[in-house]
Design a protein around this nucleic acid. Structure first.
Lengths: 133, 133
DNA sequence: GTGCCTGCAAATGTTTTGCAAACCT
DNA sequence: AGGTTTGCAAAACATTTGCAGGCAC
């Protein structure tokens, strides 16, 4: 199954790598739509998944709400704000030995080293403390 | 907002605590439906969320596909099979010091100690290795 | 020219919500 | 009685899929 280089594919990749930070499919769609109104949402979804399969993007799953994408390929984890849904990188990984131990005791394999931890971001913390709303 | 004790509410709680392991809302619904066909799916969803809010159940989020629920309230983590969607407990938590460090450097607060790690369960590993399918 | 890709619309799957009737206390 | 809760259907939301036409190679 050989891949073709289409305008849409290029735009999707560049939106994630050059223009946005941890965007969702919707945000990628909106961004591209500004300059290229003809693009269809299904095309964005298809290309994001395809690029993630090829290893050119990282799919951040395990988040409440829509999936986010990341152009940083190195293993790292993410913090997700449960209030505003923002996602940030955090330079933390679970020790390799711990993973091996989990795999050994549970029989699970192929564990995903990119984990997601949810919490409340600084901005939303402020709001919560202030207005209690 | 005082709560009332209804048949449905009791059935939902008992389905998760006594009858099923890490069920999804659908599985809870199916189970209860066997003996109590009148129950509505919205009622199951409403009660699961309500019981989780009250702290009587744990909502396992950060999973691909439907949310699961857990009757084990103590802090622990979960392994999720990305093939068959099964969820199992794993007696592992990230070191408290690490969490504090993340909170300090990122400004995030209220981090969720119950994390989800996805991988492939023993049964599905077997299938993958065998049939390559 | 072949067949991968696109855009559109419709379908899917999970969860939430509006509403009138029923029920708990 | 009064407010909560229920069941149903419809809505909401994210994502996938079927299909006919278009484009890359």
């Amino acid at each position: 199954m050989d891949r073709r280089q289409t305008t849409q594919r290029t735009l999707v990749l560049s939106a994630v790598t050059d223009q946005l930070e941890h965007p969702t499919a919707q945000q990628v769609y909106d961004k591209i739509h500004e300059d290229f109104p003809g693009i269809g949402k299904a095309t964005v979804y298809r290309n994001l998944n395809l690029l993630a399969d090829e290893g050119k993007l990282l799919k951040i799953e395990g988040i409440e709400g829509p999936v986010h994408f990341d152009s940083t390929l190195k293993t790292h984890s993410h913090l997700e704000c449960k209030v505003c849904n923002k996602v940030i990188d955090v330079d933390f990984t679970i020790d390799g030995e711990v993973f091996e131990n989990i795999e050994r005791t549970t029989g699970f394999g192929d564990l995903n080293r990119n984990i997601v931890i949810s919490g409340i971001c600084p901005d939303c913390l402020k709001t919560v403390l202030d207005g209690k709303e």
